[in-house]
Nucleic acid binder design. Structure first.
Length: 271
DNA sequence: CCATATACCTGGCAGC
DNA sequence: TGCTGCCAGGTATATG
């Protein structure tokens, strides 16, 4: 579920409400992808300074240390004073003086990891290799194009890899490639500078637009205040196999790349 | 260094 | 109904 827009929408939906809170308790459910990395009780008494995002990770800054949250494929957060007893897929509760932050994650590919600082070994292992943020002005064409020139893999796979630019997952990779008129199978190093610029702009546009629309709710995503997303209603290609292209009417195709589905329009997107 | 496959886990759905 | 197989928003890790 959660790509950059869903993670950012989640952040925006509770960051201001949890800032300043004091942690009063922690509850662990079934194991997540990684262990927490500290004694749960040791978090009690610490204060939440704020919530940032790096790629698809949420960083909850504490007065001592950081909590890294990842939503995996099926995770979502809820923040409220009203949350009752945990249900089957509620696997982490952070209780604070301003409400309870709860991770619901049926597939448990998500995680909550404590790191002493952003420079700590645990944090660097998860964040250290990530590419640039697409939405904060750091996404430079020259650097992007140079990076593309060094990869012979299909452009779709390069985008998913996150080493050049973060936050683009399976939905938005297909959408950005549609918007820039690039076939997902084109090998990255063959993209001209003008095409790289079209792609860069499409990534920025599609991710920004998706944040505005509250993300994509394909099955169960909602932000921390329970709001659903609506971007999926304006998707041009994702999950639209055999349906007509919204621009030219050609039947949208689906193919497999690296064990993931890709969708594209063979007429609008050039090799 | 790059490229590809694998693993993790649960639930929904189509087809029989 | 109930079973089976396939599919699903991610990414660290192992292997070539």
């Amino acid at each position: 579920m959660p790509e950059l827009p869903e993670v950012e929408v989640t952040r925006l939906s509770f960051a201001h409400r949890i800032a300043g809170a004091r942690i009063t308790g922690v509850r662990l459910g079934k194991p997540l992808r990684w262990p927490l990395g500290c004694a749960p009780l040791s978090l009690v008494g610490r204060h939440v300074l704020g919530v940032r995002r790096r790629g698809k990770y949420l960083l909850i800054d504490l007065d001592q240390g950081i909590l890294l949250w990842h939503l995996g494929m099926s995770g979502s957060l809820r923040f409220s004073r009203e949350l009752g007893p945990p249900e089957v897929h509620d696997h982490f509760d952070l209780d604070t003086t301003q409400g309870r932050l709860r991770l619901n994650d049926p597939r448990r590919f998500g995680a909550v990891v404590y790191a002493a600082s952003e420079d700590s070994e645990e944090a660097v292992k998860l964040l250290g290799h990530l590419g640039v943020e697409p939405l904060n002005g750091e996404f430079d064409l020259d650097v992007f194009h140079q990076g593309l020139r060094q990869r012979k893999t299909a452009i779709k796979q390069v985008l998913l890899g996150g080493a050049l630019v973060v936050g683009v997952g399976n939905i938005y990779a297909s959408e950005a490639l549609f918007m820039s008129g690039i076939r997902p199978t084109v090998r990255a190093h063959r993209l001209s500078r003008p095409r790289a610029e079209k792609l860069r702009q499409a990534i920025i546009d599609v991710l920004s637009r998706a944040v505005q629309k509250g993300g994509s709710t394909l099955r169960d995503f909602s932000s921390a205040d329970g709001q659903q997303g609506y971007f999926q209603l304006e998707a041009h290609v994702y999950d639209r196999a055999n349906q007509p292209c919204r621009v030219c009417g050609t039947s949208i195709r689906r193919l497999q790349q690296g064990q993931r589905s890709t969708f594209y329009c063979a007429k609008c997107q050039k090799p």
